[in-house]
């Protein structure tokens, strides 16, 4: 756990600022197809960072984050239906976001109290089951009209195309996720969570308030995921149970984190970029092979580089440093 309290260096600030400028400039030079790819990378990269707020520090790996993604989207959709047509779209979106966050906050606390008592595989599967139940419930009860879904109004801002607008919304979403992750990692909460990840019983014995820390991380992660669900649904313009309660969303968040490096800021985003580019561009015409390649990448990463690409690079750098030190000592 090197560098926990190391201040962010001016080089890191500079690099971040450069990346941000590049990201803001992109929509004015890229083609619509490229922008749509970038949108996906921003959104799912942000969601993967949000997943890492709990799964990155501890071994509480949620296999059902699509539950919150869908919950948020449905909360916003149902609220939108109640509002009259005179409410402008932007206000609708903001109210929908607030309502989705409130609903998810309550639901996440209610679910976390029993589920966070489970550990490891049992937690993972309980979350998977929770997501399945929510998906089924939304389709079964007519009030939620999950099978038919909702049509969402089109958000318009003068001077920006729809693709550009949602690009910026997703960019803001990603920035918020990154900001929360960085702040959390440097706070007492993040250190406590890392202790929980290493040995929960010892952490509890040493006075880390494990239950409260786990709950906090779980709820923040869930609420961010719900925000992602609302934004995603507005960018599509419609939603049904099948567009949001998708088991592949839950699993992709883990896959992206795994590819880049679990528990790092850049890892999940790099992972999302690699996997989305790989499936959408390299294999764009070979839809049949997507699952095969995704599965193969997953198996290869877990077997060969369980700490992800970032872990791989760090290991190589450390090994090189060690050899230089040895050579220096020998001469």
């Amino acid at each position: 756990m090197r560098g926990f309290h190391k201040p962010i260096s001016s080089r890191q600030w500079g690099l971040s600022a450069l990346l941000l400028v590049g990201a803001v400039a992109l929509p004015f030079v890229a083609s619509p197809f490229e922008l749509r790819l970038a949108q996906q990378i921003l959104l799912f990269g942000g969601l993967a960072v949000a997943w890492n707020l709990l799964g990155g520090f501890t071994t509480y790996w949620s296999f059902g984050h699509a539950a919150f993604f869908g919950l948020g989207a449905f909360a916003a959709g149902l609220l939108g239906q109640q509002l009259g047509p005179e409410v402008p779209v932007a206000l609708r979106l903001v109210l929908g976001l607030l309502f989705a966050m409130a609903v998810t906050l309550a639901a996440a606390v209610a679910v976390a109290l029993p589920v966070l008592r489970l550990r490891g595989i049992y937690f993972a599967i309980a979350m998977l089951a929770f997501a399945q139940i929510l998906g089924e419930v939304s389709k079964t009860f007519d009030v939620f009209q999950g099978a038919i879904g909702f049509t969402l109004p089109i958000l318009k801002v003068p001077g920006l195309a729809k693709v550009q607008l949602f690009y910026f919304l997703f960019l803001v979403f990603l920035m918020v996720c990154i900001g929360l992750f960085v702040v959390m990692r440097r706070s007492r909460l993040g250190v406590g969570l890392t202790c929980i990840g290493q040995d929960e019983d010892t952490a509890a014995m040493l006075g880390v308030p494990t239950e409260r820390y786990k709950l906090t991380a779980f709820v923040i992660s869930a609420v961010l995921t719900a925000v992602g669900g609302v934004l995603y649904s507005y960018s599509l313009g419609f939603m049904t149970a099948d567009t949001v309660f998708r088991i592949d969303i839950s699993l992709n968040l883990i896959l992206y984190s795994m590819v880049g490096g679990i528990g790092t800021v850049a890892g999940p985003i790099i992972g999302a970029a690699i996997m989305i580019l790989l499936t959408q561009v390299v294999l764009g015409d070979l839809l049949d092979l997507h699952m095969l390649v995704t599965g193969a990448v997953l198996v290869a990463m877990v077997t060969l580089a369980p700490k992800g690409l970032i872990g791989l690079v760090r290991d190589m750098r450390r090994r090189r440093e060690e050899t230089t030190v040895e050579e220096g000592a020998a001469s």
Partner: peptide, 11 residues
């Protein structure tokens, strides 16, 4: 092992 078997199932 959870992730590996999931990858196998996808393939």
């Amino acid at each position: 092992s959870l992730l590996i078997t999931f990858g196998v199932s996808l393939m």
